[in-house]
Amino acid sequence: MRILVTGSKGFISKNLIAELKNFGYKHVYEYDRDTEPSLLNEYCEKADFVFHLAGVNRPKEQSEFMEGNFGFTSILLKTLKKYKNTCPVMISSSIQAELDNPYGKSKKAGEDLLFNYSKETGAKVLVYRFPNVFGKWCKPNYNSAVATFCHNVAHDLPITVNDRSVIMNLVYIDDVVIELIGALKGNEHTDGDYCVIPKVHTITLGEIVDLIYNFKNSRQDRSIPNMSDQFTKKLYSTYLSYLPKDSFSYELRMNKDNRGSFTEFLKTQDRGQVSVNVSKPGITKGNHWHHTKNEKFLVVSGNGVIRFRKIISNEIIEYFVSGDKLEVVDIPTGYTHNIENLGETDMVTIMWANECFDPENPDTYYLEVKL
């Protein structure tokens, strides 16, 4: 299938083209403002589907709105008619097409042009009125508040919020791309004359800003945002894509002593925390028990033994563990337990606890496993 994508260097187009290639589409014609104009003839003659994503958002002169959003659409459709190519044409419009401003008028003019083209030629047309689209590769300080906020916060730059109560309707770039590829296959979602993105997120501007700052702070407090919330999950992925190239990594506080080290890695609000424990050869750690706190131990390097004893019993249970055979050992409540390094190198254990450590209520009581 031969696919023409106009505005190929734009935000939506870059994501769409990348996914089209992932799906195995080999003939994707990429057309942008710096493409040799004569190629439009070749592409329009051969195309089996057109994603018309070219447009003008922030021109120097208001007249450029109509030139870019109506004028080029007219050229594209005339070229398709020249070659009697009635393949489906998708156009990216905007919810602002309903508004009486230069940008909205230019988008509405492009829509009308496409609907008239369909009546004249019988070609299938798909008009999408996108709300605010966010996600990776969106240009900051241009026409996306989310992109600007993510970029500025990630780069320690100030942001300006005039009204935190402003309600935003947003769609995520991956959801847009999924819908567009569905439209390519004839499975578009519609609402009357228009096509729609099924998943729209409604949230206030202030809530977006608070989330982004929480993402930034999560590196210091080692927390993970609530990934069960779909918008938070998508916004967090977006925020990470704006990190400076020299800031992908961040240090963790290692609590070291002569036995090895213990480092908290991740904390969550409702799924506990993950830590990394390093034990030196011959060292035993633990010898304590919990009422409600429970843990999972996974030795990933070295070898050792995990011992248990129910605090009201004399029986000692042993589990021999090794990084050569990854297995998780549950640490039940009411059992005093320890872990001993039996090897000649450091033993590394990933430890999960069902709750984040609370120094005011540690639920940890010292008791030797061995009697």
Rank of each mutant, 00 (worst) to 15 (best):
I224C: 13
Y239V: 07
Q220T: 15
F262M: 08
R259W: 08
N255Q: 10
T238N: 06
G182H: 06
Y236W: 14
G206D: 11
M254T: 10
G286I: 02
I181N: 03
E207L: 08
N187G: 07
S247D: 14
L180D: 04
G192K: 01
I224F: 04
G286F: 03
V274R: 00
D221G: 15
Q269D: 11
K267G: 00
Y239D: 07
L211S: 10
F231H: 10
N214G: 14
F231M: 13
K256C: 05
L211Y: 13
N277F: 07
D193H: 05
L184C: 05
K267P: 01
P244N: 09
V196P: 01
D221H: 06
V209L: 08
G260E: 05
L211F: 13
V209Y: 03
L205K: 12
Y236H: 14
M227F: 15
K234A: 12
S247P: 01
E207T: 12
R271P: 00
K256M: 05
M227H: 10
I203V: 15
K199A: 09
E207F: 03
V299M: 01
V299Q: 00
G186L: 11
S237L: 10
Y213E: 11
I197L: 09
Q273C: 14
L252M: 08
K267M: 02
L252A: 11
F265Q: 11
K199N: 11
L298Y: 06
Q269V: 05
L240N: 12
N226L: 03
S279G: 01
F215E: 12
R271H: 04
